[in-house]
Structure formats: C-alpha cells, structure tokens
Design a protein around this nucleic acid. Structure first.
Length: 1210
RNA sequence: ACGGACGUGGCGGAAUGGUAGACGCGCUGGUCUUAGGAACCAGUACUGCAAGGUGUGGGGGUUCGAGUCCCCCCGUCCGUACCA
C-alpha cells in the first residue's frame, strides 16, 4: 500500500535517479501525517489550568447513512482553523467531536431492515469518522462522546431527574429543589401567587389549599399536586402526533404541518405526555440574548419563537341570558380544578405562564357561587382526579344545559354521585339521563354510601366502565363547555392594544374555543355547529392556504363591554387561533386589519379609534396615532392610552396588564425505541424517580422496534422493564413497578454535551466542578442556522437550569456563535417529455416531430424505430430527453398529449454543460429513463447510437445549471472523498475557505479548485525540495519512526531583503486579523499573493518561509507539518508559537498618492511618505500635470490626507 | 404580510468614507512541448482608434470625496406566518 502512495508525481521530471526535484505529493504527505498525529496523540488535550483556555465547539452531528458532501465540513474547517490558530497563540484549546447518535432515522432504518439501530448507527459513525479523519481535523478523539453510550446517557437521565426534582420559584426567579416547595406547602399551603401554575400547554391548574389541607392529602394527591410544578412533568397535552413515525414531535420538529424529518403529516392530538417547562424560562431566554455574540438573524429567530407580547387581559362579562345558570345548569364549584383552556403561555407578573384567577376574584367568585361539594363527591374526586383512571376525569362539567358531577370526555362517560336530592328527584334524573344519552353519553351512577364505603372500589368500577367505552377523543366536537366545575361567567381575551377598547364592536372566538357551544343559542346552533365542524375538518395546511378567505358565524350571544356596558355580539371565526392567547379576541375593526376584514365581510360596525383614520378603506394600525374615542382615552397617544386603559381595567377588576408568550412547553416523550429511557417508574400510576444509584437505566432489548399491538411504545415489549427501588431494574414481581416506556427526544442528549467534553470519562459526575470551572462557556460555537429554534433554545434552557441548581457557574452555554452558510449544489437539468403512443402513430400519419433550436423539426417517422414495446409487444409511451432549452420545452408543452418537465441529471455525467449520453445511460441501467431517446442540437441518441442531423458531429445534450440545495435527491452532490483523493485535504480545506465569506451561502464549483491546488504546489516549490524518488518511504516504516530522511530542502539562510520581509509581514498581519474576524477567504487570498510575490522575487529564504509555514498550518496542516519537519524541526508545527508581524517591515519610504480632482482620481504621484500635509500640497500643486489640469485656475480647496489621498476641488 | 440578510465583471468574490473589481476560476494571445485538459508569461469591467468617457439594482441626500453613511423605491434569498 505504501507503494501506491509513493506512486510518482503526475509528471516527474526525469533528471536522474538522485536529487530529483520532488513535486508536491499530497497523497503521501497527508497519509503519513495523519498516521503520525494519531500515533503521537498530537491533538490530545489536558485540563491544564496553568494555560489560558479556549473552547471551540462544532454543533453535534447526527451521522446519517448518506455520508458527507462537500458542504458538511465547511464549519468544521473554519472552527479547526480557529482552534489551531489559538493553539499557536498559547491557548489550551478544547476542540472536541462526538455524535448525536440516538434518533429517528436509524430507528426507521431498523424497522425496515430488522437490524438493531445500535448496529446501523455504529456503521454510520464509522463511515462518518473515516470521512472526518481524511480532512485533517485537530479533534481530540479521546474526548469523543456519543449520546447513545450508556456512560453518557446516564448523565442525560440524571439531568432529567434534576428537572423532575425541580420547580420554578417565581419569587427568586430560578429553579429550586421540589423539597423546598413541599416545605413551603407544609408551612403555608398554596395560595394566591403560589397557586399559579406556570405553563404553556398544561390545561389544569392547582386549586388553593392551606397547610393543614396539604398535610391531610394522601401521598397520591400530593404527588399529583407536585406534578403541576415540576420542570419535567407529565400531563395531558395537545401534542403534534405523527402517525407515520408513530411518535410525538416538538413544535420545532414540525414545519408546514409535516414532520421535519421525512415530511410526514402531523396532527394535533391530546395525549398524556412528558413535557419540559421551558416556558418558565421564556423571559430569561429572551433577556439572555442581549449579551450573546450571536448573529442578529439568529437572535431574531429566537425572539420571534419566544414571541413575547405585552398587552392586557380583558374580561368581558357574559350577559345573563344564555349563561348556563339561568338555563338550568347547576351552580358550580370554583375550587374544583378550573380548566379555562390554557394553551397559552400567558404570564403574570413576570414568569407565570399559566392563566389563573386573581385571588380577589376567586374569593368573590366563591362568595357568589359556592356550592359545597358533597363529602362523597369530594372523596371520589380525590381518587379519580388527574390520571388515576388512566384518562382524565373532569368535575362539575357543563354538558348542554346540565352540569354533571364527573365526566370523561374522550370516553363520553358521565359519572353521577346521587345524594338525597336525587332520590327525591328520580323523574327529573331519568329525564336528564335520557338527554345525556341522546347526546351520546353513557351515564353511570353511584350512591353517596357506596363512595364513602369504598371509594377505591368505585374507582375500579369506573375504570372498568371506561375500558368498555370506545375512545371518542373528539373533545372539540362534543357539546361541552366551560371546563371543570365552573359556570361560564366571562370571556377572557388577550390584546396588545387595550387603548382601542372603545372600538370593540364584537368578540371573535376560535372555532375550537370551549365556550362556543355553550354560548350558542338554540336558534343558531345548527349553523354554528356546521361551521365549527367545517373549520375543524380543514387541515392546518388548508387553513394556512386560505388566509384571505373570511369566514365566521354569529353565536347569538352577547358579552358586556367593560367600560361602556354595551352588548357586544360574540362571533366565531377561524381567523382566531385556538392556540394563542386565550383563543378569543376583542375585535377592533378600526384598529386591526383582520378584524376590519371580518367586520366588512359581515357588515359589522366599524368604529374609528384613532384620529385621522380612514376606516372606510382600512384599519389604522399606526402605533403613533392619537386616540379619538370619547372618554378617558381621548387625545392620548397610543402608548399612554395603553397604560391608562390597563389602569382603568384593573380598577374595574375587568382585566390587567399581561405579558403573553408564544413559546410552548416542549413535548419530551417519544413513543420510540432508539432514545434515552426516561428514568421513571409508576407506582399507583404516579411517576417516581429511579434512584441515582440505579442509573444508567439501560435501553432494554426488544424483539421488534415497533409499537405493541395495544399501541404501547416499543419499550413495552421488553420483558425486564420493571423497577424496584431496592434492587433496581428487573422482570417484575413483588415490589417491582412498571417503568416509563417512552424515550427522550433527540434534543435531550445534545442539550448538555458541551459539558461532557470537559471531562468525558468522569464516572461520578457529568463533569467535575474543576473541569467546568476551567473550560467554562464555549468561546466559539460553530454550526448551521437551522438549529435556531430547536437545539439552541433547549441548549440554553438546560444550561440555565443547571446554573439555577448550582451545577454551573454560568447560565449561557456559548458566548459567540457563528453560522456557517450553506454550500449549494449546482444541479444540471434537462427537459423530459413522455410522448404518447397515439401521438406518435396517428397525427395525420406524420409521426412525432421535435422542433429544433434553430428551426425545423426532427421527426420520429412512422417506422416505430423509437417506440418502446411492452411484454405483449404493444407499443407504449416513449420518454424523450432533450436540452433544457426554454424554447424546446415550450414547444413540447404546447403539443397535444405531451407532458414536459425538467429533471436533474447526475452532475458526474455532465462535462462543461453537456450531458455525456453514454455515461448517463450506463448510470441508468434498470431505471426509469433507461431507454429514453435523447434529442440534442446535433442529433438523436437512442440505445447508445447517435443519429446525427445532416453534417453534425456527435454531441451530448446541453444541460441547464441550476443553483439549489446540495442533496442526494437533486443529484448534485459532490463528495469530499473524491476531491481529497484528487487534490488532497489541504487543497479541499483551502478551497472551502476560499469560496467566499463563511456565513454566506455560495454554490460549489469544483472547477475553481485548481487555483488553490496550484497555490500549494507553488508554495512547496519555494522550498526547492529534492530527494531520491526510489528511496524507501517512511510510510513503510513504523509510523512512530523519525521522519523520512530522503528529502531535503535547499534554502537560502541569508537575511531577507526589504520586499521579502514586506511580503512576509503583510501576510502575517492580514492573516492574523482575518482569522480573528473569521474572514478566511481573504486570508487564503493573502497567502496566494505572498507566494506569487516570493515567487517573482525568487525568494527561498528560511527566515521568510519558516514563519509562513506556521501561518499556513491552521489552513493546510499536512503540508505545513511536512515542510516544518523538512525545515529541521523535530516537534509538531502545532506547537510552534504564532509568528508576530512587525509593523516596521511594512513602513514604506514612499507613498503613491492618488491625486483626484473633485473626487475623481486622475493621476498618481509617488512622494516620500514622511512629508507633511503642507509639503504634499505644495509639491502636488507645483506638478506640471496638475497645473495643466487646473488650466490656470487656482483650486478652491485642496484636501491632503497623509499616506492616503490628495483631492483637489476646482 | 412581518422580521432578517443581501444586491459589485462571464462566475466565486475583494475594498478602516480615500486609486472599485484584490485573489481565484473562466476566457484571449504567447512561450515551451510529440501532444495538452501540464507548466510559465501577458492581457481580460464597459465604451472608444485614441486622448478620454462611463461604471457597484434604481432615484434622491450628507461629504472635499460614497460600493460603504441616511431616506425612498425595485429585486433576490432565508426565517416566521391570521400571534390579536
């Protein structure tokens, strides 16, 4: 194998056996140095506190099976240059690499092939590593981490447990151990502020209780209450369910209604689900952005994703008439869990993200409406609440005109507890039961005595009854209303413009809003239900596509305006999103264009709210307008009016200032196999943490990677998926409890990996405090902008959390972040048409004609020569490929029964814009267009034969280049391995950097690479290297042996001349500055300039070439290392100190002054650089050419900027 | 629609408010070669025979001086997308 690497350079100069001029042989050099670096652990990094540290990190790659294309290493090369540069500059540099090796693609592949994902992942990693190794990165592979390694995910699980064991204390504004919350409950219970649950997607909230009540709760109830506070929590939440992938996805994993990976449709589904309370950190995630050195676009993306908006929550009281109380419903219990549909992350005051009633309001409510729940009801509630029955039971829920005791909505099962009242009202009860059955509900009844005697037995009966019911899971269609245990009193809306309150002419509810059915009057019910049904049947995509269509319907009900007391009609409209704010808006057609369009469409009143608005034409959304509404806001500017309106609302207890976030809590459980097991077991259906000493909880073996027949996640297939706190994981039995069967999402492992690199082998902690203190934050984080709202948000969230709990001294992971741009591919496209049979053989018997570029036609005659036949010998449609020339295509499209389009052909079979037909045909063997007819300007190809038009030479089909994303499916992928074997890794590295600014997207053009390759060869030749090409190469010797001795340099040891020094130091200066500014394309240019200059100066001096070699080392490490050793050094160039540039070599005696007249440069005068302004002016004006240009006029003004320019104003 | 980035030769792209087009590709001509898809030399924004003139998406402004700063418009790309 060494022999092959030693193969002679492409054009050896046959000067004789000895002292041959040795040409740059990248294959030999690169292989040799890669081996030696590995053997000598050149890039090994110690945690060495005596040296300043620098942490350069690349975003965690997920190695798919597809392998790298030339776009992938771009960021790695840039970060490697910085890492190497910092090392030369005296820093101890941490520049690690590892793999995000859990994930969906490997699992999908496993399902398809039956192979264990660990195995296919291993293969992918090996291939990825091999490709990385070829590029010459300075990674310390001893620090490699893999998220799927139990030694790694042990700590991912540990962090999960920390989150499970924490709650967010809004007073201290940080996460605290849950024990502190328990202590607080024991001391003062849960009241007011404390009772506020903080979350986006959670739909329940904790009632108030005092210390005594807390202590009286049984263990189960306590645990259920704590669920509402934990940062990792289990709840019934609306999730993005992807049926094709069989799992839940986080919001950032869904794009345009389909999964980001694979593009499968995603639907909204309500599921019991692990979530992460990232919403608690919304404000801090926002604030933290200000101090980060990240690109503005990335910070903007995060700001938009978090979506903070300030405004007010306004309560519109409902007019009495249609309220359920008056319609015969029973009064309700405000202390029971109030659902109040919180999809929003509405907060108050700072970080509270759930909606909740203010204490005063609750009390008032309680006074008005309190219904003492019977003891039996309460008893039963304690045992069936939450998820005790396997699904959620709601209490005191309004159905049609009744309020039932308990109901399971998905199962449409009503549970009634009959006390004395019912016994006296049997007639009425049977009517009620009948009515509920009409509505599709089953009703089961228990007596007070039954419940009091054995509530658990009653629960079991309920569970049995539930299990017999089909799963309706159609909450939004059910004729249900306001939520658990609460009569409808008001509608809450969120608005950013409370100053426009006087312009409210109607309210609009989202079709999914829970008040819709209860507010709908009987005469409007049919219409409203039809509308809601249509709206809900439309997919997210349809809805998005039809944003300009106005639709809606009136419910028949009215609300009261908080200021004027006027009746405000309540409408339903699908322009209101259920998921944002409260799912209801106050419509101000005069101030909001969406409301305006709705009002215009339905003829609703449009009230002017601002001065100077032309409300007939459009709404006035200006934020600097003056309010014109009569009343206390009149004459105020918008910002002042907002403040004033909020004050007035608060006075009336009709609303208050609010901050609303768009950010939702993140779904954390995946119904998949290939991920970290969530270290939780269930006792009595309550999740408990697996003990730390039992971590890692190893991913179990399963027979198949598919869900079970009951739809349980794959982990449920494992036979040993039980846990005992005493002995750990086991097969079950006494004292063993079932373990959680969902696994963590891909982002779990990547949210903290930067910490593990600091101390990757630590068995006692995720990383030692010393290592964390030393390495600290990432100094440079390099990666793609596609992670803006996913990884980078979770990454920051976990860091802040670990900081809160005292594990980290900093609360942001990466100070500086750079997004490398994409390298785009250049696709080559041709036209394709499918010519139908009847067109070919009929058409007035003329056969098929193809119009040609220069006019005229090529005719497929009636010979059927080009027809394709199927097995029965019947001719079928023929594929025709032709030049992707617009005219040609157009002509095809215009012809009957033809279908024409453009397709890409592999870039490998295109040379200089011409498709090599023969190669292409070969690549298509057995595929779609295998027997296509190719029509080019010169003739027609068919079955490998060329039929020329008169006099034409055989020619391929001309292709059209299109710049687009580089991807396998677009057939435009350029593989780095091919580039490396032809030009070497150093050339690849230089060229990728040379292509353009790092952060910009730019197309890859392999043709341009020759320039950088030539540069390296020229640089090599400056060293005048000679040797014996037949001498044994050190590549045949053990890798650790000393460097080969058969090459030598012929350098000039004398002191460099001034121009030589200048060429060197100008380069050192520019390159140093450019690396600091990450402007690598210009540093490569500068190296080229230097080499060109030194070449024309015929400079072969050690004192010039040696520093230049060090400066080149970060960019082209292999050649630099080789030359460094040829210069006589015994240690790696990596250890050489960075050469300092000296300004004195750049000082010129003379300066060529551009002389401009009125700013336009007309001539250049070389003058001594030491001259003062006045001297320059005098000399310039005395110059005859200047005089000639002045034509005797004296200049109005002369501007002299020393060593820069002279400008003469005439 | 909103937010962000950007707009310079045939192409990728240079240019602290100071000679626009560095460097590279491509192209043209030449040298050397059996040959060139090797190497080297020269040229290459546009226009004009030339002197010269014109040029950084368009228009306006600030300045002695604008690719660069400010305002308006046009266009491209990337996010987000009825967010109240």
């Amino acid at each position: 194998m060494g022999g092959e690497r030693r193969s002679p350079p492409r054009s050896p100069l046959h000067l004789g056996p000895w002292q041959v001029n040795m040409q740059y042989d990248h294959k030999r050099i690169e292989q040799e140095w890669r081996d030696r670096w590995k053997a000598e652990k050149t890039y090994h990094v110690e945690n060495d506190p005596s040296k300043p540290k620098y942490y350069v990190l690349d975003m965690f790659p997920y190695p798919s099976g597809a392998g790298l294309h030339v776009g992938h290493p771009l960021g790695y090369i840039a970060s490697d240059i910085v890492a190497r540069y910092k090392r030369h500059s005296g820093f101890n540099v941490l520049h690690p690499m590892g793999y995000d090796s859990f994930g969906l693609p490997a699992e999908q592949y496993a399902i398809q092939t039956g192979q264990h994902p660990a195995k296919t992942t291993e293969i992918n990693l090996a291939r990825y590593r091999e490709q990385l190794d070829r590029i010459g990165f300075s990674f310390d592979w001893d620090r490699e981490v893999r998220t799927s390694d139990p030694n790694y995910y042990k700590w991912t699980q540990w962090i999960f447990l920390q989150l499970f064991d924490s709650w967010y204390d809004t007073a201290q504004d940080k996460a605290r151990p849950i024990a502190e919350l328990i202590a607080r409950f024991e001391e003062r219970g849960c009241k007011g502020q404390d009772a506020s649950v903080l979350t986006g997607d959670i739909e329940e909230f904790v009632g108030e209780f005092d210390a005594a009540e807390w202590k009286a709760f049984d263990e189960r109830t306590k645990q259920l209450v704590l669920q509402y506070f934990r940062l990792a929590y289990l709840s019934d939440a609306w999730v993005n369910w992807c049926p094709a992938l069989g799992t839940v996805l986080a919001n950032d994993e869904v794009k345009d209604g389909v999964s980001e990976r694979g593009g499968h449709p995603v639907e909204r589904k309500k599921m019991r689900q692990w979530s992460m309370r990232i919403t608690a950190y919304a404000q801090r995630l926002l604030n933290g952005l200000d101090d980060l050195d990240w690109s503005t676009s990335l910070k903007e993306s995060q700001r938009n994703w978090i979506g903070r908006s300030e405004g007010a929550l306004v309560r519109f009281a409902l007019t009495p008439n249609p309220s359920p109380k008056e319609r015969g419903g029973m009064p309700s219990d405000p202390q029971a869990d109030s659902e109040g549909k919180r999809n929003s992350a509405t907060e108050r005051p700072a970080y509270l993200t759930a909606d909740f009633k203010s204490a005063s309001e609750l009390q008032q409510f309680a006074r008005d409406n309190r219904k003492e729940p019977t003891e039996a009801e309460d008893r039963l509630w304690q045992v069936i609440r939450g998820s005790a029955t396997g699904g959620r039971i709601r209490r005191q829920h309004a159905i049609d005109k009744y309020i039932v005791d308990f109901v399971s909505l998905p199962k449409q099962l009503v549970i009634e507890v009959d006390g004395d009242i019912h016994e006296h009202q049997e007639d009425e009860d049977s009517g009620r039961t009948h009515m509920l059955q009409e509505l599709g509900f089953e009703v089961i009844r228990f007596t007070n005595q039954e419940v009091m005697a054995d509530a658990i037995a009653v629960r079991e009966s309920i569970i049995v009854a539930l299990s017999k019911r089909p799963d309706f899971n159609t909450t939004r269609h059910s004729p249900l209303s306001s939520g658990e245990g609460q009569g409808v009193r008001e509608i809450e809306v969120f608005t950013t413009r409370p100053d426009t309150l006087f312009g409210v002419s109607f309210l609009t509810l989202a079709p999914e809003h829970e008040l819709v059915s209860i507010l709908t009057t009987d005469e409007r019910r049919a219409e409203v239900e039809a509308y809601v049904k249509t709206a809900s049947n439309r997919s997210e995509r349809d809805r998005q596509a039809e944003v300009d269509k106005v639709s809606g319907v009136f419910t028949g009900s009215y609300a009261k305006h908080p200021f004027t007391g006027a009746d405000v009609p309540i409408w339903v409209g699908d322009y209101v999103l259920a998921g944002y704010g409260t799912g209801a808006v106050m419509a101000v057609p005069g101030g909001d264009q969406r409301d305006w369009r709705f009002a215009k469409h339905f003829g609703l009143p449009i009230i002017a709210v601002t001065e100077g608005a032309d409300i007939e034409k459009e709404a006035d959304e200006r934020k600097d307008a003056t309010i014109c509404s009569e009343g206390f806001l009149k004459g105020l500017k918008v910002p002042e009016a907002i403040t004033r309106a909020i004050q007035e609302l608060e006075k009336l207890n009709a609303g208050e200032g609010r901050i609303n976030f768009r950010l939702r809590d993140a779904a954390f459980g995946r119904q998949r196999y290939w991920g970290e097991p969530i270290p939780v077991y269930y006792k009595d259906d309550i999740p408990y943490a697996v003990k730390e000493e039992h971590l890692p909880l190893i991913l179990p073996e399963v027979d198949k990677f598919l869900p079970t027949e009951d739809g349980e996640p794959p982990l449920a297939r494992a036979t040993d998926w039980h846990y005992s706190p005493l002995v750990g994981r086991g097969a079950g039995g006494e004292g063993h409890y079932p373990l959680e069967t969902t696994t963590m999402p891909g982002w779990a492992g990547s949210s903290w990996y930067f910490l593990r690199y600091m101390d990757p082998k630590n068995e006692g902690r995720f990383a030692s405090p010393e290592a964390i203190k030393y390495w600290g934050q990432v100094d440079l984080y390099m990666g793609g902008s596609e992670h803006a709202t996913g990884h980078l948000l979770y990454f920051r969230f976990w860091t802040k959390f670990l900081h809160d709990r005292g594990w980290l001294p900093f609360d942001e992971p990466a100070k500086k972040l750079v997004n490398q741009g994409m390298i785009q591919g250049v696709s080559q496209s041709v036209g394709v048409a499918y010519v139908s049979l009847d067109h070919m053989v009929t058409k007035e018997n003329r056969g098929m004609r193809i119009p040609l570029r220069e006019g005229g036609y090529f005719e497929f005659m009636n010979s059927h020569k080009f027809l394709r036949y199927n097995e029965e010998g019947v001719p079928i449609a023929q594929t025709v490929l032709m030049e992707a020339d617009a005219k040609l295509l157009r002509d095809f499209e215009g012809m009957n029964r033809l279908y024409a389009q453009e397709i890409n052909v592999p870039v490998q079979v295109v040379v200089d814009g011409t498709l090599n037909v023969v190669d292409y045909m070969k690549s298509l063997e057995g595929q779609k267009h295998e027997d296509a007819v190719f029509v080019s300007e010169a003739g027609v190809w068919h079955e490998g034969k060329f039929t020329p038009f008169a006099g034409a030479e055989p020619l391929g089909v001309r292709t059209k280049p299109v710049v687009e994303k580089m991807s396998k499916s677009k057939l435009n992928v350029v593989n780095p391995d091919e580039i490396i074997s032809k030009y070497g890794a150093d050339t690849l590295r230089l060229y990728e950097m040379f292509l353009g600014p790092l952060e910009q997207s730019k197309p890859w053009d392999t043709n341009g690479i020759e320039g950088t390759f030539r540069f390296l060869r020229k640089f090599w030749n400056l060293f005048r290297i000679s040797g014996d090409p037949n001498a044994p190469s050190s590549t045949d010797a053990p890798v650790a042996s000393t460097h080969r001795v058969d090459l030598k340099v012929d350098l000039d040891e004398t002191e460099p001349t001034k121009p030589e020094f200048k060429a060197l130091h100008a380069t050192l200066k520019k390159v140093t500055e450019d690396i600091e500014h990450m402007s690598f394309n210009t540093s490569v240019s500068q190296f080229m300039i230097a080499v060109n200059e030194l070449g024309s100066l015929k400079c072969h001096k050690r004192h010039v070439l040696e520093p230049l070699t060090i400066a080149l080392a970060p960019f082209a490490p292999h050649i630099a290392e080789e030359l460094w050793h040829l210069l006589g050094h015994k240690t790696s160039v990596t250890l050489a100190p960075w050469p300092k540039f000296d300004e004195k070599h750049l000082v010129e005696d003379n300066f060529s002054y551009p002389i401009s007249f009125n700013g336009k440069t007309r001539m250049v005068l070389e003058l001594p650089a030491s001259l003062t302004k006045e001297e320059v002016e005098a000399i310039v004006l005395a110059n005859p050419e200047v005089q000639q240009r002045l034509e005797g006029n004296s200049p109005k003004k002369v501007i002299v900027v020393p060593k820069r320019i002279v400008n003469i104003v005439v």
